[in-house]
Amino acid sequence: MKHVIVYKEAGRYAGWPANYGIWSWGDEIVVGFTLGYHNTDGGFHARDKTKPMVAMQARSPDGGESWETVVTPVRTPGNRGLSAGEHSSAKNGGGEEEHANEPVPVQEAIDFAHPDFAMMCAREDVVSGSGSWFYVSYDRCRSWQGPYSIPMMGLLGIAARTDYLVSGPRECMYFLTAPTMEGTETGSRTFCAKTEDGGKTIQFVSWISPEANNGFSIMPASVRLPDNRILVATRDRQVAPDDRASNWIDLYESSNEGKTWTYLNRPVADTGRGGNPPTLTRLLDGRLCITYAYRDAPYGIRAKLSSDNGATWGEEIVLRSDAGSHDIGYARTVQRKDGALVTAYYYNDELGGACYIAATLWKP
C-alpha cells in the first residue's frame, strides 16, 4: 500500500473529488477537484468562503504514481466556480458577467461511446432552485465542451455530481440528487434520468431512494453488473428528535434499466460525523469495491469488498487512519491494468490544517 500526494499547496484548500469525477484509460487517470483558500475558522470545512473556488484536474500517466495538475479548461456559468453557491460567497462583476456562459441544450448529439469520452456534472448549489449542467470531453479531459443544461424535469432543483453509466453511442443514464424541500438539503433524494438521443433531451426515470424527511439520501454511485442489473450506493443521514445524526451508506438495485429500485442492504453502517459519499468499482476479477471516508476518530479512508455482486460485504479495510480531522474523503476509485486500485480523495494532516488531494495505491 502506498500513499501519494496528488496536489498540495500551502494556504490552499483542495477538496471533494467525488463531486467532479475520476476517469481512466488503462493507466492514464484524471481526477477532478476544486481549489480554494484555507481558513481554520471556515466551519465544517476549513475553507475561506469569501474567496473564489476554481475547478482543477490532475492527470497521472503512470497509474497514480505521479500527477500533474491544471485548471480544468471549462467555461463556468457566470464565470464562477463549479458548485460555487455551496462553497463560496465570492461574487463576479455582475451585469453581463452574471449571465456569461449560461448552460444551453445539446445541439449535436453526443457520442457517449467514443473511446476517449468523459463527462463531468456540476451544480449551482444543493438546495431548491439549484440548476445543474454537464460537460463532455472526447480527448481524455484535455478539453471540454459545454456547459450543457440538465433540465429541471419538474423538480425543485437538481444537485448534480458526476455519476453516469453509458448504455450506447446515444444512450446514457445520469444518477443525480434532487432537493425536495425549500431552502434546505434535508429531504434530498437520489434519482436517475436518461437520454436516448445523445443528450438533446434528458428525462426523469425514477426515484432511487425513499423520502427522508428528517435526513437525506444523496450522492449516488452506480455500477452495472454483467447481467445488466444496476447497483447504486447512496450517502444517507437521519436526524433523531434530540438532533443526533446517524450517517451510513445504503445499496439499491434495479433489474429493469432503472425503472424501479429495490433496497438491497447497508454495506456501511457508520461513516462518522457528517457522513461521506461512497464510490462503487467493479474489479477485473468480478468483485465489487466500495470506498469512503470515516469522519470520526481515527479519521481516515476505508473500503469493503463483495464477492457476490453486492449481496454481502466483507470486513472493513482501513486504507489509512492518520487524518487530523473529519474534513476528508469524497473518494473515487479506479483499477490499473495490473490490478492495483487507485483511490483518490481529499485529506488533511492535522486539526485545522489545510486540505489537499491524495491517492492510495493498493491491492484488493
Rank of each mutant, 00 (worst) to 15 (best):
S255H: 08
T291R: 03
D296S: 13
P298Q: 10
E253P: 00
G352E: 12
P278V: 04
R237E: 06
W261I: 06
L305W: 02
R273Q: 12
K304C: 11
L225W: 10
S255E: 12
E211N: 12
Y356D: 12
G324C: 13
L288W: 00
G352A: 13
N247G: 02
Y299F: 15
R332G: 00
D296R: 09
G286S: 04
N256L: 08
G300T: 06
N348R: 11
Y346D: 09
S246E: 12
D242P: 14
K304H: 06
N309F: 07
D243A: 12
R229D: 06
W248K: 03
L280P: 01
Y292W: 15
S307I: 01
I249Q: 00
G324I: 12
M219T: 10
R282W: 01
R282G: 01
S217R: 11
K304L: 11
T234M: 01
R295A: 05
A233Y: 01
N247L: 03
C289G: 01
R237V: 02
G272T: 10
W248I: 09
I317Q: 12
G274E: 08
D227I: 05
G275F: 01
Y356W: 15
P298F: 01
S325L: 10
G272P: 09
D270H: 14
I317D: 02
A269Q: 01
L305P: 06
R336Q: 13
T343P: 04
I230S: 01
A311L: 14
G329S: 07
A221T: 09
